[in-house]
Design a protein around this nucleic acid. Structure first.
Lengths: 233, 233
DNA sequence: GCCAATATGTCTGTATGCAGATTTTGCGTA
DNA sequence: TACGCAAAATCTGCATACAGACATATTGGC
């Protein structure tokens, strides 16, 4: 029964849950989840007709959802060719990472200055979850993204938050596809506590240095592109 | 003859100029020009039906163009209410400016390192035009934006360039509406030569200091939000 | 005369249909 | 068997149409 999907969609819309929403918003969620989870891989073509058929809706909401995903950098449009999942190669990783340094360092510093007990509790909670993580790699990636997004929001500058989202979400989608051992994943996640200490003001380390260390655990040579990243040692 | 507009559009599409394009792309150009020029003012509602009627096309391309403009930060969607030209108040100017500091400083440093004679010539040309400027305030704003965009592109990092565009273009649109005397405008434009010298490596000044000075000529208190901006004096 | 409730009109969100372009498929040929 | 070309299938871009939501105007009540 392929219209189960459609029923899910329509049910969600008909249900009196929260504010009234649109089909497009739901398709956005479905598609971004598909990309983040690796169901759609970088370079894949997202056929709007096919997706519309699978969801038993017309092409219009799918089209607009794809357009919105383009805004978030997850897909790219090639005129009259269709939408393709953004492909991130080594070069792009370097460019994004170098931009991440300046943006997230700023976010970290701002968040530290404006930190509230409530936000701090949220971050602690996420890090605790990370420590006890024993689920799927997808869950781990979701936790990772959630931590950083909370941090970005805590900066108090919505433009900074938006820029970080636009740049980093595709990178996270790319990272999710990396197959690393659970131990490596666990080790990387454990480093978030260092970030937490820094943003909580419990650490003397320079925010930028902390971030660089954090990023070096996942990527190589962030300094090639950035003017800020200079290996301290 | 209201269908003159339509003829313009269709002519542009039928003309064998360059690569084949879409209606949406043209509407994007028309609308962003309208916003940048102040024809549509911040807070204005962009009625997609009305725009479609004016251009004698269907609502679909207009709709998609507005969606794309949202990506560039020029308009914002309120669900079932329509699209509104992004409104920028004093608070937003501060937030954008503080983000601009970190982004454009990085762009300036990267551009300096990667500067080529060709790019340098482009920048010189724009600054010369600025010196000889005697046209409309709109022209001045266009030159200003062109200079900075050239600079951003010269950074060589497309993600950085994109982030700067997304954040700064709405601010430029907002600035365009500011009514300042021609002398003030001329004075502000003249400072671009300082930026040019910095990016050309002809100056000993710190890029960040140069940028801060540049920004102080237009805005107040960029340091309130940023961790980087510290008044040197 | 003023406020509220209803009625009317307009707009957004979505569905369906069509034309041109692109990709795929199938066939013929080297 | 491999390659090239052409026809078919499919897809995107756009137009038209309709239903529900929102905004404004009108009317009724106090």
């Amino acid at each position: 029964m392929e219209n189960l999907e459609q029923n899910n969609l329509v049910d969600a819309l008909l249900a009196p849950n929260g504010p009234p929403t649109t089909l497009r918003a739901h398709v956005v969620k479905i598609l971004s989840a598909g990309i983040l989870s690796g169901k759609y891989k970088p370079g894949d073509r997202l056929n709007e007709s096919q997706i519309a058929r699978e969801l038993n809706i017309s092409r219009i909401p799918v089209r607009e959802a794809l357009s919105q995903l383009q805004e978030q950098g997850l897909v790219q449009n090639r005129e009259r060719r269709g939408m393709f999942v953004t492909n991130i190669g080594p070069e792009e990783v370097l460019q994004i990472s170098s931009l991440r340094i300046v943006l997230e360092t700023e976010a970290l510093r701002l968040a530290q200055k404006r930190m509230t007990p409530h936000v701090l509790a949220s971050l602690e909670k996420i890090v605790d979850k990370m420590d006890n993580w024993n689920g799927t790699l997808l869950d781990a990636a979701a936790l990772d993204l959630e931590f950083h997004r909370t941090l970005w929001r805590a900066s108090g500058n919505p433009y900074l938050e938006r820029a970080l989202n636009a740049v980093m979400v595709p990178l996270f989608a790319h990272k999710t596809l990396e197959h690393v051992t659970r131990d490596v994943r666990r080790w990387r996640m454990s480093h978030h506590r260092v970030l937490l200490d820094a943003v909580a003001g419990r650490s003397r380390d320079d925010p930028q240095a902390v971030l660089l260390t954090h990023m070096r655990m996942a990527y190589t040579e962030p300094e090639r592109y950035s003017t800020l990243a200079r290996k301290p040692s």
